[in-house]
């Protein structure tokens, strides 16, 4: 059986809508990936726990509220506590350019801001997976 790329799409924090996350989820689906969607208002603990149970290759988080500098690194920290180092973690949403280097230093492999074509995100995932497909 062919290996499928599994992606957890999650909305950490208190955002009021998830239109962007749904657009990404749909684009990844149409690229042949299996997308586990967890919906709004997820804590980092919920995201990491779900990513373990679902055994995903990728965690894709979207934040609009401005809490990314706190929540994204927290997810990385929880993954490290569980000794999980083979999951690709990417982020998106309303994220100022000056915050991106810090997020990358924390282990967020790619940050995609509004206007990024979905094809770019798909290519990035395919080229940066940490496990063999």
């Amino acid at each position: 059986m062919e290996r499928k790329i599994r992606v957890l799409v999650a909305k950490p924090g208190l955002d009021g809508h998830d239109r962007g996350a749904k657009v990404i989820a749909r684009a990844l689906r149409d690229a042949g990936m299996e997308v586990v969607y967890t919906g709004l208002r997820q804590t980092p603990e919920q995201i990491v726990s779900a990513s373990i149970q679902e055994d995903v290759d990728v965690i894709a988080m979207s934040i609009l509220s401005g809490a990314h500098n706190h929540l994204f690194p927290r997810v990385m920290q929880l993954l490290a506590e569980k000794s999980i180092d083979d999951v690709l973690v990417i982020g998106g949403g309303v994220i100022p350019d000056e915050d991106i280097p810090g997020l990358k230093a924390a282990g967020i492999a790619g940050v995609f801001t509004p206007g990024t074509p979905t094809t770019e995100t798909i290519e990035f995932i395919k080229n940066n997976l940490k496990r063999g497909i």
């Binding site: 062919e2 042949g32 967890t38 779900a50 679902e54």
Partner: peptide
């Protein structure tokens, strides 16, 4: 495309951090 949206979990995420529950899509 072979892709899928696995969305059942949305309704069950309150159990995600309960160690007595395991959910797989």
């Amino acid at each position: 495309t072979g892709g899928a949206i696995l969305g059942d979990r949305i309704r069950m995420q309150r159990h995600a951090t309960d160690p007595g529950v395991f959910i797989r899509s």
